Amino acid sequence: MPYAPADRLYYDADSHIMELPDFLKRYADPALRDAIPEVSYSASIVTDEEVAVIMAQGGRHSPEHVAAQVAMGDALIEKSKEIQGLGAFNRDDRTVAMDLLGFAKQLVFATHSVAMPFSPSSKLDPALRYGAARAHNRHMADFCSVDERLMGVAVVPLDDPALAMAELDNALRLGLQAVWVPHRPCGDRSPGHVDLDPFWARLAESGTPFVLHVGGAPLQAAKAWMNNGRPPTKDWLGGGENLRTKDIALAHAAPEAFVSMLVLDGVFERHPGLRGAAVELGAGWVPELLRRLDWVVKHWSRNDANLQGLSRTPSEQLTQQMAFTPFVFEEVGVFIDASNPDLYLFSSDYPHIEGGRNPIARFEAALGDRSAAVRDKFYTENFLRIFPGARVEARRAAS
């Protein structure tokens, strides 16, 4: 019996590939291959020894390891984690994992290979930045090609509008079903800059959502915030390279700023068909974001001509065009009560440990005594609103 109950279709808004070192190089343009670095696990709980063993086996888990993973059955999500997870990097194994997980659809994100394309460094050669994105997108499309339940997520940096458009077109030709953009200023531009309007228009016209995701901007807060005269704080994994206490406390700031710019610069107003999701960035900040943007527009539109043409309030725009995944430890029921049930998405984060051992049970506890209709939106309907391309397959799966 699969992990996900048979009471409804469960759509998973977050899962990952655990890239092997040659993930980008194998799919890179020949002229760029030598300049694109190997994927590094130096800031990860995955050890060099684990990666070395897998590479020595031809980039596969051993048959014994795969068999042991499959034998976990519906406990797979509890025990199968990180690079040792079933289907973490092998597409055929991922199909078996999907059978055991029981999700109708699953967005698939990269883990470590976005460091170069999403780097905020202005010194990085644009040809190399977009070449790395192109290699990622080719590999992601290939990984997801064997199972229609896997929805591959492209990466497209927005620092160069012309190159971003070219790579967006390439991602659409590859059949990728969402586009991950970094949630930071686009070089020296706002994401609502007129130069980027063709990018948002192309997404809207093609019915392809954009997504924001942790890793799309620097994980750690500015060093000065950490300088309190005391010994350094360890991160949640026990080291110092991942999210620390102050990092997670401030993690909402960058995606909140990015989404606010899209509203205040009129991107959602001009492109009502545009859809987007903020994934693995928490959701506790969302109810207040809606309230804040509504009063900002109400009061500042008296003097800001950019706001005077808005036909919908920011809260209406975001409810209609965006959705957000809460962390498994967040009280999503409280967020729904403070805003509305149309805003939130279920996610497992498979095979990352951050997704927890039993995400459905955790979210069920947070939803408490809220209605079946609220649950249907959280697990199914909100996903289909943001990712309408999944709807035909959903009808087939339900029949």
Rank of each mutant, 00 (worst) to 15 (best):
Y27R: 10
Y27A: 15
Y27V: 00
A28K: 09
A28N: 05
D29Q: 11
A31W: 07
A31F: 04
A31Q: 15
R33Q: 10
R33V: 03
D34T: 11
D34N: 11
A35P: 06
A35W: 02
I36G: 11
I36T: 09
P37V: 05
P37G: 00
P37L: 00
E38M: 01
E38P: 00
E38K: 06
E38S: 11
V39Q: 08
S40M: 06
S40P: 10
S40I: 05
Y41N: 09
Y41C: 05
S42D: 14
S42N: 12
S42A: 15
A43L: 02
A43R: 07
S44F: 12
S44H: 13
I45S: 12
I45L: 10
I45D: 12
V46T: 12
V46C: 11
T47K: 08
E49G: 03
E50V: 06
V51A: 01
V51T: 09
A52C: 04
A52S: 13
V53F: 02
M55K: 15
M55R: 15
A56V: 03
A56M: 03
G58F: 03
G59F: 05
G59H: 08
R60N: 12
H61D: 07
H61R: 07
S62I: 01
S62F: 04
S62C: 04
P63T: 07
P63L: 06
E64F: 01
V66Q: 05
V66S: 02
V66T: 09
A67D: 08
A67L: 09
A67Q: 14
A68I: 08
A68T: 02
Q69K: 14
V70T: 05
V70E: 12
A71W: 10
A71V: 03
A71R: 01
M72A: 14
M72Y: 04
D74M: 04
D74Y: 05
A75C: 11
A75T: 09
A75K: 15
A75G: 03
A75W: 09
L76V: 05
I77C: 13
I77H: 07
E78P: 00
E78N: 11
E78L: 08
K81H: 13
E82T: 10
I83S: 00
Q84S: 14
G85Q: 10
L86M: 07
L86R: 12
L86S: 06
A88N: 07
A88Y: 02
F89V: 01
F89E: 13
F89P: 12
N90H: 07
N90M: 04
R91Q: 07
R91F: 02
R91Y: 01
D92Q: 12
D93I: 00
D93C: 05
R94E: 10
R94I: 00
R94Y: 06
T95D: 01
V96N: 02
V96H: 03
A97W: 02
A97P: 10
D99N: 12
D99Q: 13
D99R: 14
L100D: 09
L100Y: 07
L100P: 08
L100M: 10
L100E: 09
L101W: 03
G102W: 08
G102N: 07
F103S: 07
F103K: 03
K105W: 00
K105S: 11
Q106A: 14
L107N: 08
L107V: 00
L107Q: 09
V108T: 11
A110N: 15
A110D: 13
H112K: 15
S113V: 02
S113D: 10
V114L: 15
